[in-house]
Nucleic acid binder design. Structure first.
Lengths: 221, 221
DNA sequence: GATACCATTTTGGGATACCAAACTGGTATC
DNA sequence: GATACCAGTTTGGTATCCCAAAATGGTATC
């Protein structure tokens, strides 16, 4: 693996894992020394992460993108458009055997599963569901949207009930897909996305003070 | 303007203007000497253009992305999802005065307008229409999709009638938006996109032999 | 104590040097 | 004539160096 991919991967994991907080300043030289690479691959990695929305320019320098509540709301609208479109394509397929794999993925989580895993499976569910459509652009759009939502979802305060509700909604969605009922599946997916967005934004808005105290920049909607 | 932006802009224009043909190999050193910049900004520019889909990696090196008919069809599906979503948002706005600007844009083209201008206006119409939605992600998605379609549309053989039809469809679409009839507008937009895609792909498939003879790589669907 | 100013340091943008891998062209062998 | 092989060249990946602009910090002035 090249140094660039190496830096890109590690830096992405640090940002998504909140090891570097939203809003934090980054210098190319710090990254350079942190990962033992020279500035050339560091700069290339930053350019890529910029297109993912994980870092952004701040005048001349670089900043880990803040959590932006207005942006989260816009992403939800974008997600709804592309995920529903992907879902309708999937429902139109003859071979829906891949639905079994998604159900297995959901069922791999139980009460003993660490929260980190729930988080990852929740994202991958939507990404893999979009992949089933066979449309590369819808798939990438969903993957990118989930990447941009990832940190915010991690910061969201979610109780057991909320996790269970999402899990149940995912299962119900798959049932509609399996039945080939595109309209019902689309309605369920839309409701799921809108509900998730509302809870997410409400949670972050409530915790905004506390998050900022932890050094996390959270920009209001 | 920085060297990187300079190289990025000029190289993008050369690729979109087909001065460098689809499928052509690129070397960092050729770009370096062509634009009088060193390899650092050249590499940065290539990384950005890669995310736009205009260049792609080819083993170790770089290639101007070929025209891919299967990709064009997928992009049309993607476009339809995001453009319709953006359009519905726009129809829900109270202030639809921006529609006047779009109509003026369309009306700036007449029989004396060069084909190049028709091409640009046809793309900008969709991009600006998406911008009206106010959703940054839907807007970017449409802009990126149009960028990826740009070269193929330029290669498409379009007679006067086809240009006129697109123009009329754009106008009819705006009329529905002005009336606030989201359903009608969405139907017209969907039909317009699907029709454009069919004509585009059919035209390129017909001309594939000739295009390849001109050195343009056109990958089959 | 606040502020304007200047020297120093830091930082990103760019240029260049070096290297290993891939490619090329020619040659020798069968 | 086809093929295996080898030296030379090209190329992308990386490290490093230089520079101008911006940030920093200390100091003198009011």
């Amino acid at each position: 693996m090249s140094q660039m991919q190496n830096v890109e991967k590690q830096l992405r994991e640090m940002i998504l894992g909140l090891e570097i907080g939203p809003g934090e300043r980054l210098t190319e030289r710090w990254i350079e020394s942190r990962f033992g690479a020279s500035r050339t691959p560091v700069r290339a990695a930053l350019l890529r992460l910029e297109t993912e929305g994980l870092v952004c320019r701040d005048g001349r320098g670089w900043t880990v993108s803040p959590i932006n509540l207005a942006e989260l709301e816009q992403i939800a609208v974008y997600r709804e458009a592309v995920e529903v479109a992907a879902l309708r394509l999937t429902c139109a397929l003859e071979d829906r055997s891949a639905v079994d794999l998604l159900e297995a993925m959901l069922d791999s989580c139980d009460a003993t599963t660490p929260r980190e895993e729930w988080h990852r499976v929740g994202m991958d569910f939507h990404i893999e569901l979009a992949r089933l459509s066979g449309n590369e652009f819808l798939f990438r759009a969903v993957r990118d949207a989930m990447t941009r939502l990832s940190r915010a979802r991690w910061l969201e305060v979610r109780d057991e009930a909320a996790l269970g509700r999402a899990w149940a909604e995912h299962h119900a969605l798959l049932a509609a897909v399996r039945a080939g009922d595109a309209g019902e599946a689309a309605r369920r997916l839309s409701a799921h996305i809108v509900g998730s967005r509302d809870r997410l934004v409400a949670s972050l808005r409530n915790d905004r003070r506390g998050l900022r105290a932890r050094g996390f920049a959270v920009v209001a909607a």
